[in-house]
């Protein structure tokens, strides 16, 4: 029986990036790509459940959907869409740079991507804080933080016991008190619940994506990549693009009703 294990043999034959269980770098790369795609399938189905709930409730409460979507901040979301699409381009260019072995460009693109990702999260955070500020009775997040300009709340779009859909946007008009029971608002509340769940889950993915990008940047700084080995950049890029695709659907579904 041979005494040299495969691992030792492989470390000599190939670079250190080839893990012991693989025969060739191509095999390792293909396995990683396929594995990542299998994971992306999972991610798509994860959001699929939320989209399923969205379809059911939009079909059940079409008016509530239209009235609620009017209260979301579409201009900010449009900016966010642009930000994400640009970040998708920079990621694609980062993979391209890695493929060509251009470390400088790779690092620039990675940095740009992370910057755009952060921008997205900041804008998203502002959007969220607007909603929370209204619940707290403030006009906008800044007056909420400074504590000035507090007044009686007439709008709270955060689902929960305090949820209050503003009357002037409701189809019923303001004369009937009974029209504002929980049930009347259920469609509106479901819209905002799904809005927070879907965009929140998306934001969590974005944060994970930023973590992945930072790890890849560190690896790039340590010269771990070469034109023959850049699998982490590639599969990290796949993950980032998926986040982008999900936003491509969230944007028209929530903001452009």
């Amino acid at each position: 029986m041979a005494t040299i294990t495969h691992e030792e043999a492989h470390v000599h034959a190939h670079g250190p990036e080839l893990q012991h269980q693989f025969e060739t770098p191509e095999q390792q790369k293909e396995a990683a790509t396929l594995g990542m795609w299998a994971f992306l399938v999972t991610e798509i189905m994860l959001f699929g459940g939320i989209f399923m709930a969205y379809i059911v409730y939009r079909w059940a409460f079409p008016e509530a959907w239209e009235e609620s979507a009017a209260l979301l901040n579409t201009p900010l979301a449009t900016v966010n869409t642009v930000v994400l699409l640009v970040s998708s381009l920079t990621v694609a260019l980062a993979v391209n740079a890695a493929e060509e072995g251009n470390k400088r460009r790779l690092l620039t693109m990675l940095a740009l991507t992370m910057l755009l990702g952060l921008t997205f999260l900041v804008i998203k955070g502002y959007e969220y804080s607007e909603k929370f500020a209204h619940c707290a009775g403030a006009k906008d997040p800044i007056s909420w933080i400074t504590g000035s300009d507090l007044h009686e709340s007439h709008e709270c779009l955060v689902p929960g016991r305090g949820f209050l859909f503003p009357e002037e946007h409701g189809a019923t008009g303001g004369s009937h008190g009974a029209a504002h029971t929980a049930s009347m608002q259920s469609g509106h509340q479901l819209f905002f619940l799904l809005y927070f769940c879907a965009t929140g889950l998306h934001a969590i993915h974005m944060i994970i994506g930023l973590g992945v990008m930072s790890a890849i940047t560190i690896m790039a700084l340590r010269d771990r990549f070469s034109p023959t080995y850049f699998t982490p950049v590639e599969i990290g890029g796949l993950y980032w693009h998926l986040i982008d695709i999900i936003w491509v659907f969230l944007f028209p579904l929530f903001y452009l009703v």
């Binding site: 798509i44 993979v95 695709i245």
Partner: peptide, 30 residues
């Protein structure tokens, strides 16, 4: 995005099947 940015256009047949499969299954669910 899937075809170009995610390289599915030039990927292996299996990757293409998996990428398409995810959407097919979503449609089944819906």
């Amino acid at each position: 995005i899937v075809l170009y940015f995610m390289h599915v256009k030039i990927s292996s047949r299996m990757t293409q099947v998996y990428a398409a499969g995810a959407f097919v299954w979503l449609i089944i669910l819906f």
